[in-house]
């Protein structure tokens, strides 16, 4: 059996960066560490090919925690498979007006009609793989392969709040106005981030999501 762990790198005196082959392995290792959290581990920050593990240096250290990560990675099921949705949350349905400024460009890039782009985007069941970039921004896997487009060559200085977008194989929704380089397909009024709500984010890692066309 081969380990999915490609390496463990030091990120200062309080964190390790575990490198994995792909997102599925990242999420599998994160799930394993969440189920049984090693002593001293503070936070787990998943990304496309890495898992950042922050720790309390008074409780654990670089060498010991590196060994623990290697053991946990070795113990993962051999087959990776798709991202495992969490059973903790209901599927979130996000109503979207498909009126994004990049919709016509995306149709041209993919050779689809605008109508077909909308159908391709509303068909899959997505899963929130990880969050980042801004409070409440989730990176959703499950995007139709034909819509796995690169970022725009010129990022926008201000993407409107609620914009639904694709880039780099992910779908995302901007929780508030911010700079951004993703291809904007549409917009939603869903309250993606509310500090006084528990939890504050709608797009929680592990949650399944569908996009539904609205007018």
């Amino acid at each position: 059996m081969t380990t999915p762990l490609r390496g463990v790198r030091r990120a200062g005196s309080t964190a390790l960066l575990a490198e994995l082959a792909d997102l599925d392995d990242v999420l599998a290792l994160r799930a394993a560490l969440e189920r049984d959290r090693p002593v001293g581990v503070r936070e787990l920050i998943a990304a496309a090919r890495t898992l950042l593990v922050t720790y309390d240096p008074a409780v654990t250290g670089h060498d010991g925690l590196s060994r623990t990560l290697a053991e946990r990675a070795d113990a993962l099921p051999a087959q990776g498979g798709a991202v495992t949705p969490s059973t903790d949350y209901d599927t979130l349905v996000v109503p979207v007006r498909y009126d994004g400024p990049d919709l016509a460009d995306v149709a041209e890039l993919t050779g689809l009609t605008v109508r077909e782009v909308i159908e391709r985007h509303t068909t899959p069941l997505y899963t929130v793989a990880f969050a980042g970039f801004a409070p409440g921004f989730g990176y959703l896997t499950g995007t139709d392969p034909v819509l796995r487009l690169p970022r725009r060559s010129e990022p926008r200085t201000a993407v409107p709040s609620g914009s639904v977008a694709v880039a780099g194989g992910f779908t995302g929704v901007y929780p508030r106005s911010s700079p951004g380089g993703w291809q904007l397909l549409g917009s939603t009024d869903a309250p993606l981030w509310q500090e006084d709500r528990t939890p504050p984010a709608l797009l929680l890692p592990g949650r399944t999501v569908r996009f539904e066309e609205t007018t």
């Binding site: 990120a11 200062g12 309080t14 964190a15 960066l17 920050i45 998943a46 990304a47 496309a48 090919r49 890495t50 898992l51 950042l52 922050t54 969050a131 980042g132 970039f133």
Partner: peptide, 28 residues
């Protein structure tokens, strides 16, 4: 590919001039 960032990280953009991340740094 974007990855998790810690406070104190010295991130180097394409212009070669590092940015030292302080307390309000982006998480990735």
């Amino acid at each position: 590919p974007a990855e998790g960032m810690v406070r104190g990280a010295l991130q180097v953009p394409p212009n070669g001039q590092p940015v030292l991340f302080l307390v309000d740094h982006p998480v990735t």
